[in-house]
Design a protein around this nucleic acid. Structure first.
Length: 491
RNA sequence: CGGGGUGUAGCGUAGCCCGGUUAGCGCGCCUGCUUUGGGAGCAGGAGGUCGCAAGUUCGAAUCUUGCCACCCCGACCA
């Protein structure tokens, strides 16, 4: 019998979990709050990594690797940083186990207590800046443009597959610059890289902006972000880029001799995206039939399903299918030929549908005769018959069309779900009835933001980088406002 | 950490109130035959320390106590 998906309408979070499970992306593990990323889910992450890594290299960055453990004392160097992360740190206190004297299993050996406890990194600013001190003496050592692909641990109370897990995978860029201007420029450059990645690869339109004081990264002077809108009307932060000023340079005493011979503190940035993007991908495009993947991030872009009755038919159809596979591969398309005879075609159709494979090609005896193949696209679920001969071109341009179509569909959705609110009543009404982004005036105070959050659970997602801001009155307090900001309930 | 709930085969569950043969069912799995253009049908088969421990009892999945795990709701967050 068919495995049934929950629909988005019925139960959005169950629908999300069903997709994660049935598409084979991840499953929960024996460790509370931690997931196992399964091969298909990890393949998507690898595609993301590959694209981002190239973009980082193209903008002059190199990869490096820093330790998983951070001495506890490092954390207390930067006051805001400690305060931001202290409540969610895993701590290593011992380095040895011994047999339980009572004979059952093993216990911590109390004699093997660490002199200084180690924190499992929730982010690496501290260990990296402690290292950068050694690397920097002169302006000639700058800039340092380093990225790290790593796992981090943040001890969260409540977790959700990909969106919030105790351990997650990410990349963190950490750069050091001689001037404020250069560091700021880097902060904005990497935000643009993320924006580009989200729009071109993930097919998700994003809003660029800066975070309010409440939402800012612990230790940053300015946090820039990209915000995406999910299909249930909730916002999701898809990437952040921080201007750290000289905070970490001062905390870790990273100084350089300038051209002029003066001793200056280094200027810093950090920026990151995580496996959370896989969650964003799911929630942005998928439908009630399962996952929908944008071609540029799909581990399999086209799958070929042979249809046959007899052994002879199987052989001739598969032979033709292999030809077709070749034709497509010559166009650089990632093709899988599913010639397993242990599953029926109908079963495979469903399988690849909920795995989100953009294009499905079914080829049977009738097609072999006529030199055709049935093509079904995942985004619209529409089918057509095409000729094998020009399948390469047809599929290649279709993948392109699907990529653009998904972006366009997501963009339309966002536009339809972005609303202005000029009164507090209207603000609450939109949140309760529709969700989405709300453009509203705000008096600029953390107190007002806090009150709005308490009453509605909506937060300021970002303060847009809008050049032509128009003044108005705060939707909550009625006090003067410099311009509209973006509110939403968020993941 | 506070409130609520659930633990029975790989997954989902019935049985528990009211203790009593061999713990039932669906999916999945294995074998065989027929099937194969949208999750096939029939027949046969394998698979269980009923979360763990103690107690009550002639007898415990079922009653009692303790422990453990997981899920949902709140405070935290990329």
């Amino acid at each position: 019998m068919a495995k049934k998906f929950s629909t988005r309408e019925e139960n959005y979070s169950k629908w999300y979990n069903d997709i994660v499970q049935l598409a084979g992306l991840a499953e929960s593990s024996a460790v509370r709050g931690c997931m196992v990323i399964k091969p298909y889910g990890y393949a998507i992450w690898e595609k993301m990594q590959a694209a981002l890594d190239k973009m980082f290299k193209d903008t002059g960055h190199s990869n490096a690797y820093f330790p998983l453990f951070i001495p506890k004392s490092f954390f207390s160097r930067e006051a805001d940083h400690v305060e931001g992360f202290a409540k969610e740190c895993a701590v290593v206190t011992h380095y040895r186990l011994k047999n339980d004297p009572s004979g059952k299993g093993v216990v911590v050996d109390d004699t093997a207590k660490l002199e200084e406890e180690l924190i499992i990194r929730p982010t690496s600013e501290t260990i990296i800046w402690d290292t950068y001190r050694q690397w920097v003496q002169s302006y000639r050592d700058l800039p340092i443009l380093v990225n790290q692909w790593a796992n981090v641990v943040r001890w969260e109370m409540r977790t959700r597959m990909f969106l919030r897990t105790t351990e997650f995978l990410w990349q963190e860029g950490h750069t050091a610059h001689a001037t404020k201007e250069e560091a700021l420029e880097e902060t904005y450059r990497m935000l643009d890289v993320y924006t580009d990645f989200a729009e071109k690869f993930m097919a998700i339109p994003v809003l660029q902006g800066s975070k309010s004081e409440n939402e800012r990264f612990a230790g940053a002077l300015e946090t820039l972000c990209i915000e995406a809108l999910m299909q249930d009307g909730k916002a999701l932060q898809a990437g952040t880029s921080h201007f750290l000023g000289q905070n970490f340079a001062k905390a870790f005493d990273v100084k350089f001799a300038s051209k002029e011979g003066t001793l200056e503190y280094v200027w810093a940035t950090s920026w990151g995206v995580s496996t959370r993007l896989v969650g964003a991908l799911i929630m942005a495009h998928s439908d009630d039939h399962g996952l929908v993947l944008p071609p540029r991030l799909a581990p399999i872009q086209a799958v070929i399903v042979p249809i046959y009755k007899t052994r002879e038919e199987y052989d001739t159809v598969c032979e033709k299918a292999r030809e077709l596979k070749n034709i497509l591969e010559q166009k650089g398309i990632l093709v899988k030929l599913d010639d397993r005879d242990t599953y029926k075609p109908g079963w495979k159709f469903n399988e690849y549908e909920f795995k989100g494979v953009p294009v499905r090609l079914a080829i049977g005896p009738r097609d072999v005769e006529k030199g055709t193949v049935e093509l079904a696209r995942r985004d619209t679920l529409k089918k057509q018959v095409i000729s094998v001969e020009d399948a390469g071109q047809t599929v290649a341009s279709l993948l392109d069309e699907i990529q653009k179509g998904l972006y366009q569909r997501a963009l339309t959705f966002r536009e339809e779900n972005t609303r202005k609110a000029d009164t507090w009543e209207a603000f609450k009404k939109i949140l309760d009835e529709k969700g989405g982004f709300i453009m509203a005036h705000w008096d600029g105070t953390p107190e007002t933001e806090e009150k709005i959050k308490e009453e509605t659970k909506a937060t300021i997602r970002c303060i847009p980088m809008d050049k032509n801001k128009q003044a108005g009155r705060c939707v909550y307090s009625g006090k003067p406002s410099e311009g509209r900001v973006v509110f939403a309930r968020a993941y």
